[in-house]
Structure formats: C-alpha cells, structure tokens
Design a protein around this nucleic acid. Structure first.
Lengths: 291, 291
DNA sequence: ATTCATCCGTGCATTATTGCACAGCTAGTT
DNA sequence: AACTAGCTGTGCAATAATGCACGGATGAAT
C-alpha cells in the first residue's frame, strides 16, 4: 500500500531517465524501482515510460503529472525540514566538538553547570580540529577558531582571537646572545614578527600543536607567538610588549544550519556563547602578564 | 521505505483524530496505522500526536506540517485523476447500463457495428433501471430517461422523450360505451390526461412496467399513455390525436465524471449519442401512426 | 458499581516487498 | 567481430509490513 510513494518512484525515474539512476537516488535496488514503476503503470492502466535501450523516456501522460510530482516533493521537503529541526525536547544525545584545549581550558568548568541544568541531555565531547564531523552531523556544535566559517554552518563569533609573543622565566634565565624562536611546522619562511623583532633569530624548533608550542616556551627552548588565551591562563608565561599584526581569527560557536531549531542544540549553543563571552577579555588578550 | 506514505498516514490521523478512523479512511488495519505513526515519530524524533483516551490530538509540530500534507494530497489527487482518466487504449471491459427496452429496441442493432469497429473492447450490457451501478463504477455508460441527471454523472441529452395516448385495433373492436384506461401502479389519483379526455373512464388495470403496459394496450384491455418510441415501434398501436402535457423527460447518455477521458468510454459514448440522435424523430414522437 | 462502546497497543502468523544474483539486450569502442 | 559498459527484467530467499486476535484503558450510560 504505497500510493504516494509510487509517485516518489515515478519522479525519480522521470528525473534520472533510467531505472538504475533512480535506484541510486532513492537508495534502493534497481529491481525494486523496476517493479514499482511497472506496478504503478498496471494499477492505473497507463504507460508512463517508453522503454528504450538507454533507459526510460516519459510519455505524454508522465509529462502531464511530472510538475505535480515536483510540487509534492517540494512540500515533502518542507515537511522534512519542519520535522527534523523541531525536536523540542531537552533530552537525548548532544555532541560538542572542539580542540581539547578549548574544551579543557575554556568551557569544561562550566559544562558541569550545563549538565546539572539539563540532566536528560547526554553530553558528548569530541576533540578534533576539523569541521567535517559537524558537516556530517557527527557532532552538533563546534567551537572553532577560524577567520570565517563555511556557509552550511551558522553561529556566532564570541570573540576575536588575539595573539602575541610570549617568553618564560626559563627562557630568560638562559640570557642568550641570539634569540631563539619556535615556529609552526609549515612556516618555512620566517614570519613577519620574527623578521621585524628578531632579525638575527635562530629557529630552534618547529611544532604542529599549540600546546606543544606553549610547552616549549614554558620549558625555555625559545619564544613564540601564541594565542593570548592559551598563554595567559598559564603561570610562567609572559607577554612581550611588541606589536604584532592582528590574526583576523574569531572564536566561533557553530551549528549545522539544519539543527538550529532543535531545542537541546539551541540551549547548549546559547550556554556556550554565554560562557565564552564571559571570557572575552582573556581571549582578546587583555589579561596578559607582561615581563 | 515509505517516506511519502508516512505523510499520508499522518494526514489521515490528523484529519480523523483517531487511529481507528484513519484506518477506515486509509483502508488498512488500525494496528498498521498505529505502527506507521509511531515509526514516523521515531524516525524524526518528534512527537506529532498527544495520545488521549479519545484519540490522537495534533501537537504544534503536527499543526505546522498539516497544511503541507494537505497540499501534497491535493496534488496527488490531481495526479490520480490525470492517470485514471487517460487510458488511451481502445481495449478492455466496458459496460453499458440501460432499461432492457432501450438496449433491445434502440441500440442493440447498432451495437454490432460498434463491436466490429472496436474488436478489442469487451462490451457488457447491464439491464437495470437505476443509476447506482454507474455511480459505483459498476457500469461505464448509462442510457437513461430522466428530467435531470445527478451532478456526478455527465453526459448529453440526445432527445426529448415524448409521450402520448395510445390505443390498439383490439381495443377499438370492443366498442366500449365507457373508456377503460391503464395506469401506473403508483397513480392512485387519476392523471390529468384521463381527467381531461376521459372523465368517465374506468381504470381497468395498474402496472409497474412500460412493456407490460404496452402489452395490455396491444391486447385491448384499455388505452394508456406511453412513451412514443415505445409505442411507435410496434405495429398495432395507434396514437390518439389528443393533447397531452409534455413529460419534461430527456433521454440521456451518461458517464461518470471521472471517466470522461478514458478513450474506450469516450468512443462508446460518442457512438451511442450518434446512434440515438439518429432516432430522435422516433423518440420525440414524430413517427406515430394515428387512428 | 457495573456494563458497554470505542479506542489503542502488541504477539504472532501471513503476505508483500525488497535485495541478491544472474542473464539478456543494446550501443559504443577497439 | 569481439569486447565492454550500462541498462533492464526476473527467480528465489530474506526481510519488512500488515492483518488477526486478543487484552487493556477510558468515558459514558445505566
């Protein structure tokens, strides 16, 4: 008993021109599509498609109903979006993805308040650096540093990420005649801040993780440019009073465009925005300790 | 895999307010409806109906999609009508319903030409007096005498049915001093034509079938008002030159509104109209033999 | 309090649908 | 002519959907 779905199968074949193509679009076996179209035609005693070697071609009868099938599809899409985005219950799984440091240092202490407030939300944290798992709906909310998020993610920039040059007690103790710097692995050419402020610097280390970079500075191996909030929350790191060009990066709280009406996603997003906005001074470098 | 049909089940429950009512409308078991709604809600993780003792009540989410579901239904109805009415093949079963005399005396001799012209149409004749079998799609075409056909049947009035008063040789031979008339069983009060033309008449017989009435006149039992075509095709019946009020009845060729695009129904209807229009003079009483 | 009508939910058997695997056809390429 | 890719159709087994029958819940009537 599949009356309206018959039309869905019809539309797929009409659109794709082949049984095989329609099967791919519908996510079923091609034999299923073949049988459904044949049954539909038999039920109405009408020929919808001419069977050609290259596939199926619409008859006049098929062309007459095609636009109505498209209109049906349009409305079922609206229905799907309404249903999908309107889970009003504050319960169920919810996954936040962010760098571990963002999780650990910026929001973890507040997440317990969130869990107390919404005990039926099963919170998950996914520590990763990319946005693919948000796009693929493997996570619901992402906290990211980025100049500009992709279009299919929506959200709010809660702060500008400020960066500065940091040193440590351990480095100062070394009283080096020639400054030693720590760079990113992909910085093969000396970055501007080194050229401008330490033209005779020696590149002592290249790393690919900001916490590694911070640890290296803390250990006295060299000086480095760090995000202020990553540095300022750690005793023993001191900001040097040197001008550095702005990073143009923002800290964003992002969700997938389709989920913005889901209640638990919304309350969690709002909670994270509130939490992070309270730390705006830290993130924007106004809490630095200077040497 | 019933995506669009999920919506169909939703709409039925939303409209009817109960699982049982929706089941009747959909033509399935109530348990099927119950499962389909539950599966639909689970698939979208949304509550569409509050379960009450008296039935199912739409939630806000359900109300949000209800109008889209109605729009889908409207379009699927259009599609159904397009498909159902567009059977372009001149083959298959086709049933004509009419009074036996209409069949036998007016069209039977021509039907053989129809069958020769369309050998793949399986013609059936259903002799009955009412229109219910046409409404119920038990017949495809009806030939009927009626003042006005019901709205769901469409067709053409091929002739006005004229009636007149008839006598016979056998009756004239009786040379009665007092005229004897034959009436319909439900004519308890003398009809106008008797009051006006035979005020001293004796009601000799009441019948409920026009062929019985004609046979009684032929046999000399009395005079009666007969449809002209029923009388004029029979030797031995003579029309009296007496004014009689018009019957206001037409002879109609009728089909169900939904079928008017089906090719074989159309060609048969056209054939019957052509056949009956050729006998318009007979039906409208212009072929009478007068005493 | 009891009875009745109506409604919904579910275990199990039945039926329908679907996928898999295979074969055949056609058009294009070599 | 032979081969290949892409397509469709179908027998059979597996899976999903449905109907039947039953039981429980609720509200109305008595």
């Amino acid at each position: 008993m599949n009356d309206w779905d018959d039309l869905r199968y019809f539309l797929a074949v009409a659109r794709k021109g082949t049984i095989s193509g329609a099967a791919v679009e519908l996510g079923v076996n091609h034999s299923t599509v073949s049988r459904r179209i044949n049954a539909y035609e038999k039920k109405h005693d009408v020929r919808l498609f001419e069977r050609l070697a290259q596939g199926y071609e619409m008859t006049q009868a098929a062309e007459n109903i095609y636009r109505y099938a498209l209109e049906v599809e349009e409305r079922t899409h609206i229905v799907e979006r309404e249903l999908f985005g309107r889970d009003t219950r504050l319960q169920g799984r919810l996954c936040i993805t962010a760098y571990h440091s963002t999780v650990n240092d910026l929001v973890m202490s507040e997440l317990s308040r969130f869990c107390e407030r919404y005990p039926e939300i099963d919170l998950e944290l996914s520590v990763t650096g990319d946005l693919r798992n948000l796009s693929a709906r493997e996570a619901d909310i992402a906290i990211r540093g980025t100049p500009q998020p992709p279009d299919h993610l929506v959200g709010k920039k809660v702060a500008d990420i400020e960066g500065a040059i940091y040193t440590s007690d351990n480095y100062q103790k070394r009283q080096l005649r020639r400054p030693e710097v720590i760079l990113w692995r992909d910085e093969m050419v000396l970055p501007t801040w080194v050229v401008e402020h330490f033209p005779d610097a020696r590149v002592v280390l290249r790393v690919d993780d900001v916490s590694t970079m911070r640890a290296a500075v803390l250990g006295g191996m060299g000086i480095a440019r760090l995000p202020c909030w990553r540095a300022d929350i750690h005793p023993g790191l001191f900001r040097l009073r040197l001008d550095v060009a702005s990073m143009d990066w923002g800290l964003w709280v992002l969700i997938h465009a389709d989920l913005r009406s889901t209640a638990r996603v919304r309350v969690c997003r709002d909670f994270l925005i509130e939490t992070l906005e309270k730390k705006r001074d830290l993130i924007e470098g106004r809490c630095s300790t200077y040497l």
